[in-house]
Amino acid sequence: MIETSYNTAAADYHAILKDYTRDNPYDRAVLGLFAERVADGPVGDLGCGTGRITTYLDSLGLDAFGIDLSPGMVEVARKEYPELRFEVGSLFDLDLKDGELAGALAWYSLVHTPREDLPAVFAELHRVVRPGGYLLHAFKVGTGGYHVDHAYGHDLDLDVYCYEPADITTLLTEAGFTEVATFTHAPLELEKQPQAYLLVRVTP
């Protein structure tokens, strides 16, 4: 369902959102903080979509690469940003070594993941980030969720889940992360609800 929907919408998704970070001061501020904190080493944009955030991380001087579930999204990313590395993969089972990453990004890549599945994903993210490394997780604020039947000019079939920051912080702490900072902001033009960014660290 998720893979099929994003395979279908990949090209139009990119056309609509490719410059969104450039126009969003909150995104730029949080990604800048993340980039300042991450030490030398690879940074995985996990659930990278069409690579718009991966290339932004690269512009900030990070050694960034992307992984996404959707082959269609990865195909667009490789075409748009051929200088960067993109692979198809699942956040539940990453083809990465233990502690391989200096930093990881889950940038709205878990908005289609129900709460009962989040502990398994967070455990996998904790596995691949080295001690002292950072994870930045962006998500939609709220309780419950909604279904998307049409977006980016296509008929889709997607469930979207919203979470309270305190709840996500608890789950990340249980997975072995330590909270560094939490940010929220009111919805912008293309957004239906407040947005949250959680920066956490693997204990050195």
Rank of each mutant, 00 (worst) to 15 (best):
E83C: 07
L110D: 00
A166C: 04
F65E: 06
T182V: 07
E174D: 14
G72Y: 06
M1Y: 07
R28G: 00
L125D: 06
F183P: 03
E75G: 11
E83S: 15
V141Y: 07
G153R: 04
V121E: 02
T21V: 15
A35M: 04
I67Y: 06
D159V: 13
T203Q: 11
N7G: 11
H150E: 14
H185V: 11
S5Y: 02
V43Y: 02
K140P: 02
A102S: 14
L101Y: 09
F65Y: 10
V38T: 02
G132E: 01
H137G: 00
D159P: 10
N7R: 10
L84C: 07
D98R: 13
D23V: 13
H112A: 12
R52M: 12
V30Y: 03
A39C: 08
L31F: 09
F139S: 10
D12R: 12
E189D: 14
K18A: 13
L198N: 00
D117M: 14
L31W: 05
A186V: 12
V121R: 03
Q193C: 10
T203W: 01
L17R: 13
D45R: 10
T203I: 12
K18G: 04
H154I: 07
H14G: 05
S90K: 10
S59F: 06
P82Y: 05
G142F: 07
D167S: 13
E83M: 11
V148Y: 06
A151Y: 05
Y108D: 13
R130S: 04
S109E: 09
A166Y: 06
L105Y: 08
V121W: 03
Q195F: 06
Y146E: 04
V160W: 04
D98N: 14
L31A: 04
S59Q: 12
D98E: 15
D23Q: 15
